[in-house]
């Protein structure tokens, strides 16, 4: 099963608060691949809003994204685009 990993930096000033988290899980839920976010020793389900919120990732921090499944590469690309777009903030 294809597995793609990528480290993505948080570039929106407010970090991963509720609204970006909601947009993120709306995106990840569209993929069939399993998606995991890692920050430090924490590892969470990338499709779970409570999981993503738990990371409390601030501006400038890095999240490691792991996608496993047929659409893993596409998922990683779109997740990266969303992070880069600052979740529509600013």
């Amino acid at each position: 099963m294809p597995e793609v990993k990528k480290e993505i930096k948080i570039v929106n000033r407010l970090g991963m608060h509720a609204r970006p988290a909601a947009r993120l899980v709306q995106l990840t839920s569209r993929f069939s691949s399993e998606i995991i976010f890692k920050r430090g020793s924490d590892q969470v389900n990338g499709k779970s809003i409570m999981g993503v919120l738990m990371l409390a990732a601030p501006y400038g921090s890095t999240i490691k994204v792991i996608a496993r499944g047929d659409d893993a590469a596409a998922a990683i690309n779109e997740i990266e685009d969303l992070f880069r777009s600052k979740f529509g903030e600013e």
Partner: peptide, 18 residues
């Protein structure tokens, strides 16, 4: 509930700011 949790998350994020 949602606003309260969002505030807690934001507080935590600002403490952890790099």
């Amino acid at each position: 509930s949602a606003q309260a949790l969002d505030k807690q998350i934001k507080d935590r994020i600002s403490q952890g700011r790099i």
